[in-house]
Write a protein that binds this DNA or RNA. Sequence first.
DNA 1: CCGTCAAGACCGAACGTTCTCCCCTGGCGG
DNA 2: CCGCCAGGGGAGAACGTTCGGTCTTGACGG
Lengths: 194, 194
Amino acid sequence: MSRSTEGGSISEARERLLNTATRIFYTEGIHSVGVDRIVEEAKVTRATLYRHFSGKDDLVLAYLSLADQGIRGQVATAVASSESAPDQVRAVAKSITAGIRSPGFRGCAFLNAVAEYPDASHPIHQSVMAHREWFLNTVTDLLAQTGGGPADAAGRHLVMLRDGAMAAGCLFDPELISDTFLHGVEGILHARTA
Amino acid sequence: MSRSTEGGSISEARERLLNTATRIFYTEGIHSVGVDRIVEEAKVTRATLYRHFSGKDDLVLAYLSLADQGIRGQVATAVASSESAPDQVRAVAKSITAGIRSPGFRGCAFLNAVAEYPDASHPIHQSVMAHREWFLNTVTDLLAQTGGGPADAAGRHLVMLRDGAMAAGCLFDPELISDTFLHGVEGILHARTA
DNA sequence: CCGTCAAGACCGAACGTTCTCCCCTGGCGG
DNA sequence: CCGCCAGGGGAGAACGTTCGGTCTTGACGG
């Protein structure tokens, strides 16, 4: 476990910092927590934080980048789990509801972040936009493979449903939200394969 | 214009304060703006703010209450504009897309606020929840009047679509979002009246 | 020797909040 | 008519705390 070979540029303190920041930013928001909290709970000093990140914004960017990687992996796993395009869409939808049902779910990290950074020129806002663009393209491509012509409208429909499910998933019964979402996805699929 | 009779308990400074707070909180978020900004742009002094509100949180609550009143009025107008239940749902949906299309749209004031106040015990969080409960009940009642049995699932579906449309409306082309949303609403209606 | 980290002092600025002082206006009693 | 005063509002200083960020010192280990 202490094997830090292979490149070796990975700092253990940096990892603790990023994990702590991820947990706190996700559950409590960004503007409302100061670097003191993160530094304290990560058991590092301020100097260590600023040695690894250029500032708080950079830490937030790293947090979102980590979340982005996680979701991309999750989608890739879901797509790899099925053969047919419709089932791949269903698998992606199921992975979303799995997140909504999981304890500690606090909504979409990206939607939450963009609510705190409305300025479109801000790097954090742009990071959110980039993630959303990737996700829209990914599900649109997936839907296109189900046949039934251009999937742009269906892709937007699916993303809209996902955004609503993610936003409400921590404000309402997660089971009902998940059921409603999956039902809506089946509707989108049915409209294309019918 | 200076006629301030009739009760006269309405303070002109308070109104300026609340309007300014509404504009700034909605467009820039809550935690990221200080009372100094609001006080300055409302052309009042800090003392005046604290004479009318018990603190910043109270001002935020008043902002959300104002937004709540606005939306309730908007829904009431939409419902009154049509005779049949399906057309009333369409009218409500159109009023939502009108908001999304309007310049300066920054998403749902309540979803944005709750992203900054994840703590369920916080009064601001609870204020958002109360608004959302009212909205869900309202659209569920409306859908129930279209016939087709219990409308709980349809109501949740509609709210989910609305949440997604409001969340993405300021992150993507508002016209495409509006079209996608209205198309989804027609789908919900079609499933009930078919 | 050099990079990493702990520990903590320190900075200027902004935070939410409270304070005092004074002006202005309107109502009321003498 | 006049004097008084209560109260809303403006102006601004100041409160103590926290913010994000920098700096120093010294211990440890490759």
